[in-house]
Amino acid sequence: MEEKVIICNDLTKQFGDFYAVNKISFDVYKGEVFGFLGANGAGKTTAMRILCGLSYPTSGKASVAGFDVYKQQESIKKNIGYMSQKFSLYENLTVSENIEFFGGIYGVERSEISMRRTDLIERLGLEKEVNKMVGELPLGWKQKLAFSVAIFHQPRIVFLDEPTGGVDPVTRRQFWDMIYEAAAGGITVFVTTHYMDEAEYCNRISIMVDGRIEALDTPENLKKNYSASSMDEVFYQLARGAKRSDN
């Protein structure tokens, strides 16, 4: 029915005799907001690195935006966007320079960059701040700008790593508006987080424990299946038994 943009089959990443990612299988559909949850050390980061074309799996199959994670890493990178809470934009470049830089590295045409930039600045209401250093902007604006820059080259999938941790609630709402808008426009949004309140915003959620996906469903169904009142409780029930933790 729907187009699948991420397909994972028994995807495994082994470090020595340690299975960081242990035979995970899932699909993500076009335009979906997919939450990828797990405790620290559960294997989230490793799995996401494979899907972003930064690391090779040990075994199993996976394709992202139709490209194979073994053979077509370069094509994958061209078709995805990435944003994390820790690194997003260069603080000592201006708003405009950041947009130009990130547009440039993704090979967006010059004329196209300036067109989309004008449009983006207008939508974010940053007209007065175009030539300000990003470091001077309030956190919430940085966050919104970072997301816009991550999807500036119109990728098919955007990976968000704990995108709204620590952001004030008003900005967070606006941020999720932007995410939904992007999703409605056909961009698939892949969110990794260990904050359950972020998870509630996703269409579907997978929860990783000790390298495996222990649950995958809509937040509503998960809460029903685990007779829990919040995602926090669902997560707690699943992850409590985890043997692994980060190091």
Partner: peptide
């Protein structure tokens, strides 16, 4: 509790 997973937070 910043940067700590849900189980540890609880």
């Amino acid at each position: 509790t910043t940067g700590v997973d849900a189980v540890s937070r609880k």
